[in-house]
Every structure is written in C-alpha cells, then in structure tokens.
Simulated assay, not measured.
Amino acid sequence: MKETATSCTVVGALIITIMFAAAITIPGGNDSNTGLPLFLNSKVFTLFIIYDALSLLSSSTSILMFLGILTSRYAEEDFLESLPKKMIIGLSTLIFSIATMMITFCACLFIILHGKSWMVICLAGVPVALFTLTQFRLLIDMFNSTYGSGIFDRNMDSWY
C-alpha cells in the first residue's frame, strides 16, 4: 500500500504541475490590450478551463489521500477501514484526474489546430484506458474488501 501510494503521489504531483502550467499559459494567448484570453468566448475554451480545473482539483485530492496513507500510524484497525477508504478515494480521483487531463489536452489541440486534430484526439483515450486497466483490479479488490463481505463474514465450510 505504501509503494502504491508513493507512486501515485508522484503521478498526482506531475499532473498538478502540468495542469497549473496549462491554466497559466492558455492556448492562443491573451489580448495585448485587455489581457483577456483570445478564445474567451469559445465553447471549446470553456471546456478547456473547466476540465483543467477539474483535473487540478481531483489530482490535489488524490495526493492528499495518498499522503494520508503515507503518514498513517498503521494501526491494526486502520487496515480494515481507514486506509482502504483513502486508497479507494485516491485511486478514483487519480483516474478521474488523468481522464480530465486528457480532455483538457484534446480541447487545447482543438483550439490551436481549429478542429484538425481528430487523430490525436482519438488516441488520447489510450493512456487513460491503460492506467485504468492496470489500476482497476486493485480498486475493485480494495472496494470489495472494505465494503463487501469481509474476512469475518464469510461462510466457511466446517473443517471436520
């Protein structure tokens, strides 16, 4: 759990850095007279800003959850409920953050290339799918062990 939390914290920190930089250096630049973004009235630009903020906030949430795991006291009762809950929230928000980051990337390309980036937009789902596939089993196992029938509720066959 510590190794997973450490790795996911690094990924989350990278996403925060990228999304913060994307929010500051907006696609198309600013109007030199007003300082407002050039594509401020574009629907795709609105999509870009909303998903950039969602990615930044969900990645921040995932980092806080993973830091909660790393700084836990690791008591016996923590492993039954507290740590799995933090891992479930952390992984879920990290997957959401990666998905919204890719939507932000696609919106940026759509703004810059005026809709001629269909191939890159189609391929943008591949990293999201790969990360989700690699982490989904862990997420399901954590969910089942926390909220499903636990180790104390199982129907066991008699040993005799």
Rank of each mutant, 00 (worst) to 15 (best):
F136T: 04
T9I: 02
L47S: 14
P127S: 09
Y74P: 00
F136Y: 13
A99M: 12
L133W: 11
I18A: 14
T34S: 15
T46Y: 12
P37L: 04
K86V: 01
F79Y: 14
F20I: 15
L109K: 05
K85E: 08
F20S: 11
T134A: 13
N30P: 00
T34K: 05
S92E: 07
L57I: 15
Y147T: 06
I111P: 00
T104A: 14
A22Q: 08
C8P: 00
H114E: 14
I140R: 13
I15G: 03
L57W: 12
Y160T: 14
L56T: 07
M65G: 00
G68R: 01
L139K: 05
A107H: 02
D31H: 04
G115K: 03
I95A: 13
P84M: 06
F152I: 14
M119D: 12
L83S: 00
G150T: 05
N33D: 15
G90R: 03
T134N: 10
I69P: 00
A107I: 01
A53K: 09
M87R: 04
K86D: 01
I151P: 05
I49T: 15
L67R: 06
A129G: 11
N155H: 12
D52Q: 11
N30Q: 07
I121N: 03
F45D: 01
S62V: 08
L36E: 14
G28S: 03
